[in-house]
């Protein structure tokens, strides 16, 4: 039972249309837990709290089973593209 990584990926993909998506299963025995990175146009003009709410909403069904969800990244393509490898910080307006 529980939620699979594939399910999480499918729900996020269909609802947020991400240009980059990474889901990592970090469950350590106490139930399903995931780390996610989402880059989507839909985050444009939204504050971080709203972006996280969008991710939570996209996983509404899965959240009933998920023990912990860690949203590592919720960025717009604009924030993500320039230098995903460098240490430059993108700051929200």
């Amino acid at each position: 039972m529980g939620v699979s990584k594939e399910q999480v990926e499918a729900s996020l993909t269909s609802k947020l249309k991400p240009v980059h998506l990474e889901v990592i299963d970090i469950s350590g025995g106490c139930g399903a837990s995931f780390e996610v990175e989402v880059v989507s146009e839909q985050f444009e003009g939204k504050r971080l709290l709203e972006r996280h709410r969008m991710v939570n909403a996209a996983l509404e069904e899965e959240m009933k089973e998920i023990h912990a969800l860690s949203i590592k990244k919720a960025q717009t393509p604009h924030q993500w593209k320039p230098s995903p490898d460098s240490a430059t910080q993108t700051k929200d307006a």
Partner: peptide, 28 residues
Amino acid sequence: SNWPTFPQLYIGGEFFGGCDITLEAFQS
């Protein structure tokens, strides 16, 4: 809070966020 998980941090009577948001805001 319209937020599915805990912890939940409230500041000045307003929902601020969960762990990830708090950590990111702390670092910035």
